[in-house]
Design a protein around this nucleic acid. Sequence first.
RNA 1: GCCAGGGUAGCUCAGUGGUAGAGCAGCAUCUUCAUAAGGUGACGGUCGUGGGUCCGACCCCCACUCCUGGCACCA
Length: 485
Amino acid sequence: MNKKFYITCAIPYVNAAPHIGHALEFVQGDVIARYHALLGEDTLLLSGGDENALKNVQAAEKAGVPVHKFIDDNTKKFLELTTALGCRFDVWQKGSDQEHHFVASQKLWQLCDKAGDIYKKSYEGLYCVGCETFYTADELDENGECFEHPGKKLEKVSEENYFFRLSKYQKQIIDLISKDKLKIIPDTRRNEVLSFLKQPLQDISISRSNARAKNWGVPVPGDDSQRMYVWFDALNIYQSGIGFGWDEKQYEKWWPADVHVIGKGISRFHAVYWPAFLLSAGLATPKSIFVHGYFTVNDQKMSKTLGNVIDPFELIKKYGADALRYYFLREIPSSADGDFSERRFKELYNSDLANGLGNLIARVAKLAENNNVLIKNDQSDEINSLWNDVQPIVESFRFNEALSLIWGAVTGLDRYINNERPWQKELSDDSKKLSNYVVITNAVNQIISIAQVLKPFLPETAKKILDQFKGPTIKSQPPLFPRLT
RNA sequence: GCCAGGGUAGCUCAGUGGUAGAGCAGCAUCUUCAUAAGGUGACGGUCGUGGGUCCGACCCCCACUCCUGGCACCA
């Protein structure tokens, strides 16, 4: 049986349309998945919708649309984005899916309950009626009022909720992370989590009253008056999507996750809460968590109020999916924050895609055509030396370095062609003709190697190149990446 | 406020106790197979500020300053 590799991307809120931050994460997950698939592993890439948050209900009410419809409409946009980006998700698990996700989450709850880790306690907090949300003191303005509803006093409300004994698992989690059994990448995030774990953990509330949850979300088993707190069920999408609670055989095959790909804002939920729930339930913990950064736009934070939220669909329409993928993977350090600017995007597009890769393909194709080069390469996914060099870099998620290495090969091939000058036309000289032929054949083979390695990063482009150089004859074709002006 | 990481050529970044590196942009030059593309070369930095250790620091220590992130029941 093949080795398996299970990757997840974080489950986004579906209370608004996706932005480029989502796109970045989808692409990173997709690269990892495609890479492992190329290694011949059984690969599964999953994401889904965090649909049980109260915010979704509120957003739907604001839009005047039934919650289910609201969520389904937004989900559609997320799915369209994955397709437009050329990302191959195997599963998109909806949080509102009762048949699978509710069943799975109730099972997780029951396992934690059986372990004695769930108990009832009354919770007291400041409740804003306008927002229908609890706030902590530091989330309020100087008058102790919420920013959305100034002038409105918050109510002290107390409510019985279920709590989870997070404190019980502190030592085990520290052990998992410090021994890299749960590997957190990069180190800065790992250190952050470990330093957070130096303080005593408090138990967390994992349910809400029906009234407060507006009867939305996963019902707590055995208590009709409560719904699960979103993070308890949301993280469990990683399990419910692969059969937990409804197809044990499938679940056995895929769990535990090999990598959770997430944004830096939610590392604690994944590195602390999630392993705690799993330990309590007696289930395996994920093997690693890869944490990426956030986007700034022209060096400013992305925000709706600034109006600088970038729509990934527009960029794809304008420049193509692979161009956007290239920007994400090459320009954004894979585990740190990155900036997006259209100026920089065009710069990179022209220098690397149009002048670099695209032009190289065009010149070699034309040389091969002019010299009637015949290719008898079978183009199997053979291992080449470039692939060997790229492999360890991809496995540590340093996509920008991997691409930089591949572009070194592009430049190297340009240099080789310049030095050998295989366009010289002294065709009367047979030995010259032969040497041209050899040089061009070498170049074609090198291009095929480059295209093979590009498969996980720029799948559409890799395919186009491999098709063009499939042989036996090679024809010149329109540019892969027309130069931008 | 506390903790962590960072401030190196116009831009994105790499770097080591011993006279500063790459890519991109700009400039010059060679070449024409190619998307006015490709090759080569030069130009370009008092390596955040001020001290200290050392024969010698961008790399070690101290102070300051600016940026980013984390500091839980917020998703």
